[in-house]
Structures are given as C-alpha cells and as structure tokens.
C-alpha cells in the first residue's frame, strides 16, 4: 500500500465494506454536532445500526 509522506487525510474504500478514514478530520453529524476524529470507519451499505459509523452489518446484508 502506498504511504504518503504528509498528513493529508486518506479515504480508503474497503471492498464490500465501509469507508476507512485515516487522518485528522471533523465529522459533522445530521444534527450539526461536531466530532474531531483521527481514524474512523463510515458505513457505505446503509445497514449500520450505528450510522454514520460501520457496525459490521454489511456482512449480514451481503453488501
């Protein structure tokens, strides 16, 4: 895997799974709440019970 030499956040698509975000980001939720995160996995399949985060539901949903 390519490793970059700076701190620009990376968005990695995981096959049949979530979006792996690595690097400093601010997540703004649907209600406007802000969260500073350094690494997170965001749901791409629409089935997580813990949106916007991945909870592994893509496996049972067959995404």
């Amino acid at each position: 895997m390519e490793i970059s030499n700076n701190n620009i956040p990376e968005f990695k698509v995981i096959a049949n799974g979530p979006l792996h975000v690595k690097g400093k980001i601010t997540l703004i939720n649907t209600n406007g709440e802000k969260q500073e995160l350094e690494e997170t996995w965001l749901c791409r399949c629409g089935n997580s019970k813990n949106k916007p985060f991945c909870d592994g539901s893509h496996k049972t949903a067959g995404f």
């Binding site: 390519e2 990376e10 968005f11 990695k12």
Partner: peptide, 13 residues
C-alpha cells in the same frame, strides 16, 4: 470538503 486523498479497494491512490 478540504484536502484529502481517495484510495480504491486495492489500496491504489
């Protein structure tokens, strides 16, 4: 929004 990089399933930028 901002400056970021996107990688595919195989890890290619």
């Amino acid at each position: 929004q901002g400056d970021f990089e996107v990688f595919d399933e195989k890890g290619n930028k």
